[in-house]
Design a protein around this nucleic acid. Structure first.
Lengths: 224, 224
DNA sequence: GGGTGGCATCAAGAACACGTCAAGAACCGC
DNA sequence: GCGGTTCTTGACGTGTTCTTGATGCCACCC
């Protein structure tokens, strides 16, 4: 189910949004302030985020920037500010859309659909193949020499990030942010442990990996 | 260069957009009506399309739908219609954004940047080539005569700074600050050691470097 | 011709990063 | 609650990378 995180302190608006979104089969997460919003975003990985600029604890632009630091989830900004500068700031901070209050709920829903449609279209990389491996990102399936391999959720998440950037180096920081959230950016040990597990399951010779390559001091790379 | 197709029949608006977009180094294509717009979109494959809803020959929504039939290029709709239904129709037809007239040019530019950012997310990082070298900044990969060269983090960082300023001289101070931090601005020795290592790995004749050139007393220069 | 400053090269110890293992904690389905 | 899986965390041996100082080369200037 598609999940939407709403960061806003306007109870009335919150309720209206929740009712409308729930009725259309979105899973709704609510955060009354920026700090909670960032924490929820890191923890639950919503498919879309709606941020109000006027939050009690911090500026909505900071929330947008905070999310953009580690995720490319679509972000729609709501605001009562009509000034051009506010819009430019929010959009340049990484927001995908800017809707000024008051707005019609149907318009917001249409903009949500548009943002989600793009996100789905953009992340379209179905199947990656090597001589021994078949990785189906959409189906979340990995085969090695024809046999499906069982991966734990974390193992899969890690592999997914690496495969999405196939051929490119992914830094420790980036991997940790994507898989464990921004709070664990320094836990480089996790990577060692899980890369070892992935190699054990996927590589023909785990001691000399051909696809899950270490770039010492920098990060890891999936080599197709 | 990023190309933008504008489908609109309002001459005054067209001129304003063309001037502003050209000044920001976009290549601008103009179409006065929907049919021309669709033809140009098919022929030139622009990176972004701006469509006015009020066209002389057809509804802008049809243009959007026509483009969406075969392309996922970002589309921004302009319109004087403020009704919610118009917005919903355009967005659901496949538009990425809907801007109501009158609008500020800065806002539109910010929305263009946002749409382009999404579309090319990660796609546009430069690759520098010479006869013997291929340096892919995004993938953090260096090839020499087809074989990938292993670089340590510091070596890569140094090379990256030099390549980012390709052709230009980079001072000792600047390099040290970028790679080792402001505290090491005087440790010129570091540069000698690491330039020697880079030359050993990248230059055909390390004693007479062709690409990693010393500018005595000043700094170093990467010569493409 | 000798001195000087900037540069390249070399080498070695210290510091760091990696893979591996193992054990306890947390979580899940039943 | 209980058994099995998954996640976290710490420790260790090994290999690599960084730092640092010493040495020799060259061009330039006196």
């Amino acid at each position: 189910m598609t999940s939407v995180l709403i960061v806003d302190d306007d109870r009335q608006l919150l309720r209206a949004l929740r009712v409308n979104l729930t009725a259309r089969d979105y899973q709704v997460l609510l955060a009354p302030d920026g700090a909670t919003g960032l924490a929820l975003a890191g923890r639950h990985r919503p498919d879309l985020v709606i941020v109000d600029l006027g939050l009690p604890d911090m500026d909505g632009v900071e929330v947008v920037a905070g999310i953009r630091g580690w995720s490319s989830v679509p972000v729609i900004v709501l605001s009562a500010r009509h000034t051009e500068q506010a819009k430019v700031n929010a959009l340049d901070a990484g927001a995908d859309d800017y809707v000024t209050k008051p707005f019609g709920i149907e318009e917001l829903l249409a903009r949500i659909r548009a943002a989600l449609r793009r996100a789905v279209a953009g992340g379209n990389e179905p199947v990656v193949r090597t001589e021994t491996l078949t990785i189906d990102l959409a189906a979340k399936r990995v085969e090695r020499d024809g046999a499906t391999v069982r991966l734990t959720p974390t193992e899969w998440h890690l592999l997914e990030v690496l495969v999405r950037h196939a051929g490119k180096l992914v830094t420790h920081r980036q991997l940790l942010r994507e898989v464990w959230g921004p709070a664990c950016e320094t836990e480089v040990n996790y990577l060692r442990v899980y890369l070892a597990q992935l190699r054990g399951k996927l590589e023909t010779d785990p001691a000399h990996p051909r696809h899950l390559v270490t770039e010492p001091g920098m990060g890891y790379r999936f080599e197709p």
